[in-house]
Design a protein around this nucleic acid. Sequence first.
DNA 1: GTTTCTGCAAAGTTTTTGCACGTCA
DNA 2: TGACGTGCAAAAACTTTGCAGAAAC
Lengths: 135, 135
Amino acid sequence: MAALKYSRQRESIKKYLASTTEHPTADMVYLHIKEEFPNISLGTVYRNLNLLSDIGEAIKITTPDGGDRFDGNVAPHNHFYCEGCRRVLDLKMDMGPLKELNASAQQTFDGLIESSSVLFFGKCQNCLKHPSENQ
Amino acid sequence: MAALKYSRQRESIKKYLASTTEHPTADMVYLHIKEEFPNISLGTVYRNLNLLSDIGEAIKITTPDGGDRFDGNVAPHNHFYCEGCRRVLDLKMDMGPLKELNASAQQTFDGLIESSSVLFFGKCQNCLKHPSENQ
DNA sequence: GTTTCTGCAAAGTTTTTGCACGTCA
DNA sequence: TGACGTGCAAAAACTTTGCAGAAAC
């Protein structure tokens, strides 16, 4: 069990994640942190993002378009992935309906499950309005 | 717009997907089809899985453990990803609660969304019972 | 001084693609 | 025959890892 040591790079990554709601990829984080630390490497960014995710200070969201997304908001919430523009959106729904849904799932699936988060797939407002502009 | 032509390999892949509920990875499909077509290549398996997914005859499910899963059941249903054993399970819940959840999400997110499917994350029955055996 | 972290580069994993040949219609 | 599909291998895309030196404590 390794003790955690401070690093300016990790602190900068945390600050960046806390400042945005766009759920950046590792590469987007890398490009941003590079402005402050021109020598930072992508490997360091990956190591820190995984570390933060492991200790619960960030969330990793796997999407179908290659490249995980990262979220500095670790308060319980769910996500929506737009299959049109490929953005990840925060859903600040209350957890009541989620519990109902969980219960419904448990009734039909032959065994208990305990769901902690949910990822919705579909189209966002903008892509519903302008189907031609996106794939 | 290319016309679709029959191929024995694709037919075999479809048959396999229809016969299983374990949501195999491309590699698992490859290994299975290889028993019937020893010379089939992984590239062909990927091409056919993507093709089937594109024309709506299969579903591709991206999970956080690397390697997409494929499902031959294209009837509307949702999935559960167990973070313990990394299995993908089918959820045969009715769509009522999902619509409620959607509505709840739409009220708090500033814009309409239209969700077609949902992926739950959590622990399955077996992993809840035996936490030590899985990560 | 010791442990942890970083930058770099190499390697690993999964998926896609170019091309020559084979199959379907 | 002509269009589409396959096998193979190379490449692409994304992520992890080994190592020597730097930073933290």
